[in-house]
Write a protein that binds this DNA or RNA. Structure first.
Lengths: 148, 148
DNA sequence: ACTAATCCTATTATTTTTATAGGAAATAGT
DNA sequence: ACTATTTCCTATAAAAATAATAGGATTAGT
């Protein structure tokens, strides 16, 4: 039960994009990759997925780059993770009843289903703007700590 | 973010063991495997893990089989899943700070940490006896439905 | 001794993850 | 038109994790 690099890198990249693209100007993937310490080539794939999911908008050519498709407070963590990691169904039989014969009687399916819902609700509680704000507060906290 | 077959089969097997071994008599792995529709050879591995984790007790030889190491209401889902799937840390840096350089400043780590805790708490809320009871209720419900 | 159960180690096939590589397509500036 | 710089698309591949299978060793009741 781990988040893959796609989800981890992708989320960090989206926060980066929300922070650095706030003014409405497109952000180069190369810059995000550099700041986040991730291979640009790998990030391309991730942004391809995010693009198809309608979460980012790309401008090609020189002076191109990426923009958020919606406002940071309208993009929930759930959407991002769902796009990159697939739906939060912890077992296949929750989203696809044909995945198991015992669907009707199996109690564990119910438990996994509830937990999946809980995870979704949790992720729905955070938007990109939430995270950007938290990130800012954390950085400031660190600075204060450093000066003491 | 999926539960692997080890976790899925293992949990179902533990519920099975709790239900059929309630009287204190050991249960054959072959019987559990048959009831759960899982390869006996594969279940052996899973029970090896559960054994080392101190969740089940094995009796070898003829008339052998498996017993729960503790009472069904003392075994939480969290213990079972932790034994079979590893700790509920969704990213490595939560349990191992050396896994990433950005640990101090990264806000996503905090989010994953909180979510991991939530999942743990959820799983801690269910014990084997809870699930056996729920299973029983569900079966009864189905029977009633069937008779209508 | 025989039988039936768990235990242990090795092997293997498949799938998923984690990338890398190379070029195509688009666009801004010259 | 040309060039530089960006995203886009497809293919490939190495590594790791998953999902088993196989064969025999060990244990214990009859």
């Amino acid at each position: 039960m781990k988040i893959s690099t796609k989800g981890r890198y992708g989320l960090r990249a989206m926060i980066d994009l929300a922070a650095y693209g706030a003014a409405g100007n497109p952000v180069f993937l190369s810059d995000i990759a550099k700041r986040q310490g991730v291979s640009e080539k790998y990030l391309e794939h991730i942004f391809g997925t995010l693009n198809k999911a309608g979460l980012v908008k790309a401008l090609r050519g020189r002076k191109g780059g990426y923009l958020l498709q919606k406002q940071p407070d309208e993009i929930s963590l759930k959407e991002i993770i769902a796009a990159l990691e697939g739906p939060c169904s912890l077992v296949d039989c929750v989203s696809d009843v044909k995945a198991c014969q015992k669907v009707e009687t199996c109690i564990t399916r119910d438990v996994w289903k509830i937990l999946g819902k809980k995870i979704e609700e949790f992720l729905n509680g955070y938007t990109l703007s939430t995270l950007v704000r938290m990130q800012g507060e954390k950085a400031r906290q660190d600075t204060i700590m450093y000066h003491i």
